[in-house]
Computed example of a mutant assay.
Amino acid sequence: MTGFSMSATPHSASEPREHLDTAIEREYRRARFLRRRDLTLAILTPIVLLIAWELAARTGLLDPRLFTPPSAIAVRGWQMIVTGTLWIDVFSTVARLIAGFVSGAILGIVVGLLMGVWRPLRAALDPTFTALYALPKIAILPLLLLIFGLTETPKILSVTISVFFVVQINTLAGIMQIDSRITEAARAYKASGFRLFRYVLVPAALPSIMTGLRVSAGMAVIVITAVEFVASNNGLGYLIWNSWQLFQPDSMFVGLIAVSLIGAISTGLVILLERAMLPWRHGRGPRKKGKTT
């Protein structure tokens, strides 16, 4: 009996390890399947919609004079790319977007952090910022045009103001939601002034700051497109509006698609920045366990 129990012990001890390896392998395969399924759905959905649009326009379910088939839009887009007319509008919009977004984001982060750590500044500015945030940003454009004229400044400032309020509000919220026990513990370890600001407050508020940047990236694209509708003679907003006035739906759809791509790219770049700065919020999920000897 003693010999039997001693020989059975190693075998019974290895069973939980085998079950654990099996569970890890099964979870890894499930996670890999879900990633592939999500990627497939993300690719197939727009393709199916485009095919349905093409068939509906070709069969008369949609008026092709208003809803140009995707194939015709692609031909028109290629013509505009080859001739260079589309690039002029894209570069104009992107330049204004970058200038306005970067300046608005920097100002929003700085002001939000200062309001979060300095109570008198928060008391002085918070009511005013709350009222100004509710004001439609495109409504400020006539005032900016009166001050700066038909230059690039009003267009860039419209984006700057829109981005500023979104980022400032999220940055301030990130500072205000920090647990007081964290700051007390930091001060107990002699963290004060710039060290407290650099190593405690900013990292704790960073998730909220990145959320503000993601939201404001899409808003910036909307604002610059709307501004170019009425106060520009180039840019994608001008292309869309002018094409509508001239009843050129194929060119209009090219502009709409270009704006959508710029919005997606802008948001994607912010997401990549967020993944780089907040890696703990974007875990890779289960990994396949390596073979052990």
Rank of each mutant, 00 (worst) to 15 (best):
F164C: 10
I81D: 00
L44W: 02
D126Q: 14
I47D: 09
I175E: 02
L113D: 05
L44Q: 07
F247W: 09
F129A: 11
F33V: 00
V202C: 01
L97I: 04
P46W: 00
L278H: 08
A99R: 08
W53H: 10
F229G: 13
F129Y: 10
A204P: 04
M80T: 02
S216I: 03
L236P: 05
L278S: 08
M176W: 01
L145K: 00
L50W: 00
A191R: 08
I138A: 12
R287S: 14
I88S: 10
I271C: 06
S216C: 12
P136E: 09
S180Y: 03
A231F: 07
P46I: 03
R36V: 07
R65E: 12
D179M: 02
G268E: 11
F91C: 11
F253T: 08
I222Y: 00
I140N: 04
T171R: 04
L157I: 14
V200I: 14
G174E: 06
I81R: 03
M176G: 07
I109N: 07
G212V: 03
R30N: 09
I156C: 07
G149D: 11
F67C: 08
S192T: 14
M1E: 12
A8S: 14
L34V: 08
V254A: 10
I262H: 04
K155F: 01
T183A: 04
R58L: 14
D38Q: 02
T151A: 13
V48K: 08
W87H: 07
